[in-house]
Simulated scan of single mutants.
Amino acid sequence: MITVIDYGSGNLRSISNSFSHINVESTITNDPEEVAEAEYLVLPGVGAFGQIMKSIEPYKKVIKEHVDDGKPFLGVCLGLQALLSSSEEAPGVKGLSIFKGEVKKLPNDNRMLKMPHMGWNRLDMTLCEPKKTCAIIDGIVQDYFYFVHSYYAAPDDEEVIAGTVKYGFDVTAVLHENNVYATQFHPEKSGVSGLKMLKNFVTMSI
Rank of each mutant, 00 (worst) to 15 (best):
G194A: 03
L127D: 05
S85P: 00
D6S: 05
H66Q: 12
V76K: 05
G163D: 02
Y181I: 06
T29C: 08
I136R: 12
S18W: 06
H117E: 04
I15H: 02
N110M: 12
G101W: 13
R111G: 09
Y167E: 04
V67M: 10
I137H: 01
V174T: 07
L123F: 08
G70Y: 08
N200I: 04
F49D: 14
N23M: 07
V180D: 02
H21P: 01
P32L: 08
G75Y: 08
M1V: 03
V180Y: 01
E33N: 14
Y167A: 01
K131R: 13
K61W: 05
E57F: 04
D124M: 00
D124C: 01
H66E: 12
M1C: 06
K94C: 03
K189C: 08
A162Y: 01
N179H: 07
I136Y: 11
G191K: 12
R13Y: 14
A90L: 11
D124R: 00
M204E: 15
A173K: 03
R122G: 06
A162W: 00
V93P: 01
M197V: 10
M53T: 01
M197I: 11
K105D: 03
T126N: 14
Y40M: 12
S26Y: 09
L83W: 12
V103L: 01
K166L: 02
Y167M: 07
D170E: 12
D6H: 07
K54G: 06
V141D: 06
C134L: 09
W120G: 07
T3L: 08
P155S: 09
T203S: 13
I161L: 04
N121S: 13
F19Y: 13
L198P: 03
E102W: 00
F99A: 05
V165S: 04
T29Q: 08
V180M: 05
S26V: 03
D6Q: 07
A48H: 15
L195Y: 08
T126D: 14
M53I: 01
N11G: 06
I137K: 01
L78Y: 11
